[in-house]
């Protein structure tokens, strides 16, 4: 789980081209959108595509997105839970 969170933080910084921020500076419970990392709806588009590309998972609607995109912790939970379901 810790590795997954580390990978997610690196992916966020690298693929969303976050300026002036290191992956280590992102807290596990920091909100990803608005006040937290300051991501916006267009970053959400990229994030949906990235999760699909790297983890083969689809975030289907805003309810699922609201839960999964709450923080790095929430995103890691979403991925591990759905990865288990899809492989199990």
């Amino acid at each position: 789980m810790e590795n997954l969170k580390k990978d997610l933080k690196e992916m966020l910084v690298r693929d969303l081209k976050l300026q002036d921020i290191n992956p280590e500076e992102i807290g596990d419970d920091d909100p990803l959108f608005e006040q937290g990392l300051g991501l916006d709806s267009l970053d959400a588009v990229e994030l949906v595509v990235l999760i699909n590309k790297h983890y083969g998972l689809q975030i289907k609607d805003m309810e699922e997105g609201r839960v999964a995109f709450a923080s790095v912790n929430a995103l890691a939970d979403f991925i591990s839970e759905h990865r288990d379901t899809s492989t199990g």
């Binding site: 959108f33 916006d40 709806s41 267009l42 959400a44 588009v45 949906v48 595509v49 699909n52 689809q58 975030i59 289907k60 609607d61 805003m62 309810e63 699922e64 997105g65 609201r66 995109f69």
Partner: peptide, 15 residues
């Protein structure tokens, strides 16, 4: 006016 301007659903629909 939904969460993140409905962009999550829009992306999923395109996928």
């Amino acid at each position: 006016h939904g969460f993140l301007g409905g962009m999550i659903e829009a992306t999923a629909a395109l996928q």
